[in-house]
Amino acid sequence: MNYPAFPLYPGKYALPAVPDPSEHAAYVRLREPAATLADLDGVVLTYQQHVMHYACSRYWNRQLEGWVRGELRVLEYRSRILGICGGFGLGAPVAALVLEQLGALGATRVITVGTAASLQRELRAGEIVVCDRALRDEGVSHHYLGPAPYAMPSSDLTDHLARILRARTTEVRRGTGWSTDAPYRETAAEVAHYGAADVLTADMEAAAVFAVAEHRNIDAAAVFAVADSLVDRRARQNSPVTRNALHVALEAALVALGDTARASQRPGDEALR
């Protein structure tokens, strides 16, 4: 029996789309004519609401209501102006949609901060993992990139994020993640297979974020706090170590985005800020 390829329409990743994210930016600017994120040093995407609350409790911030799906705020961190976006839900499709909207409004650097499940017995809750490539076992990335097993982040931003984290904590790993749309269909066979291939974590969004970012020329990176295990099954709990790891990851992401923006700034740009 012949089964259809995915996506169903062959080669669609190379074809222009009918809707364009610039339409979203134009819609926002009907209400906010000056709406732009081009002056931000970067944006953190987060999937846990307490990470947003943590950032807002520590740094000056204001909300940009209605600019993107979810809650978008600008905050001041060490003299840099950054964005943080959350409250939009979980999974590759919504992460891709939000990244498209951010990019259409001018964002050029993004780091996702979220949780993941461990695929390695020694990788415990509260440890931090920087994802340097993501297995494309979700659907979104295949609509943006040609056939390949992995989606890749920005190497420079990922390297810098890893350096910052390693200077702050010893509980940091770096490696491959497995992105899947079906968290309740992660099978023992897959866990054993990917674990034996040294894949560190399972998540839902990284491959899609990397694919959209590559397609739209956005620098993207991803960092996870381990929340549970798929190897010797330990269900997710409201663990203080995971919560603290997310806060450490957030702080490192803010530093990395600010440093990257500073390094890319042209002479004289600082006077414009």
Results as ranks from 00 to 15, higher is better:
253 A>L: 01
25 A>K: 03
33 P>K: 12
162 A>T: 12
85 C>V: 01
198 D>R: 15
137 D>W: 02
141 S>K: 04
44 V>I: 15
21 P>F: 04
97 L>F: 10
273 R>T: 15
180 T>Y: 08
98 V>A: 06
248 V>E: 08
262 R>I: 03
203 D>R: 04
118 S>V: 01
99 L>H: 02
81 I>V: 10
198 D>Q: 15
45 L>H: 04
272 L>M: 11
189 A>V: 10
199 V>F: 07
164 I>G: 01
197 A>G: 14
229 S>D: 03
126 G>F: 05
140 V>G: 09
246 L>S: 02
242 T>P: 11
43 V>T: 06
147 P>Y: 06
270 E>R: 13
28 V>Q: 04
144 Y>I: 12
6 F>S: 07
69 R>Y: 09
250 L>K: 04
114 G>V: 00
113 V>G: 09
211 A>S: 04
92 A>K: 01
160 H>S: 08
262 R>E: 05
226 V>S: 02
34 A>R: 14
78 R>N: 13
9 Y>L: 15
5 A>G: 15
260 T>L: 06
183 P>E: 13
3 Y>R: 11
216 R>M: 06
6 F>W: 09
2 N>V: 15
144 Y>Q: 14
115 T>N: 11
54 Y>L: 06
144 Y>F: 14
273 R>C: 13
191 V>C: 10
126 G>L: 08
31 R>M: 15
123 L>N: 04
253 A>I: 00
126 G>C: 07
111 I>A: 12
174 R>G: 11
4 P>G: 04
75 L>R: 01
193 H>W: 12
10 P>E: 02
14 A>P: 11
231 V>C: 14
57 S>N: 08
123 L>R: 04
197 A>F: 12
192 A>S: 10
110 V>Y: 00
186 E>R: 06
239 S>R: 09
247 H>S: 09
246 L>Y: 03
41 D>I: 05
259 D>K: 08
214 E>F: 05
165 L>T: 00
25 A>C: 07
3 Y>K: 11
175 G>E: 12
82 L>G: 00
271 A>D: 14
238 N>E: 15
160 H>W: 10
161 L>R: 00
83 G>T: 12
147 P>H: 06
148 A>R: 10
260 T>C: 09
44 V>T: 10
173 R>W: 11
70 G>I: 00
225 A>D: 03
188 A>T: 12
25 A>H: 04
115 T>V: 14
18 V>R: 06
71 E>A: 15
137 D>R: 02
186 E>M: 05
213 A>W: 05
39 D>T: 14
207 A>C: 05
269 D>E: 10
168 R>Q: 06
130 V>R: 02
255 V>G: 00
70 G>V: 01
130 V>G: 02
262 R>D: 01
245 A>T: 03
62 R>F: 09
127 E>Q: 10
187 T>E: 02
90 L>P: 02
138 E>L: 01
249 A>T: 01
46 T>I: 03
243 R>M: 03
256 A>W: 00
180 T>M: 04
223 V>F: 02
247 H>F: 10
105 L>N: 05
56 C>P: 08
53 H>N: 15
255 V>A: 03
148 A>Q: 09
191 V>K: 05
160 H>C: 08
3 Y>Q: 08
99 L>S: 02
70 G>Q: 01
222 A>I: 09
71 E>I: 12
15 L>S: 13
199 V>A: 11
234 R>P: 05
222 A>K: 04
62 R>W: 12
77 Y>C: 00
189 A>G: 09
94 V>N: 10
189 A>I: 11
171 E>I: 01
224 F>H: 07
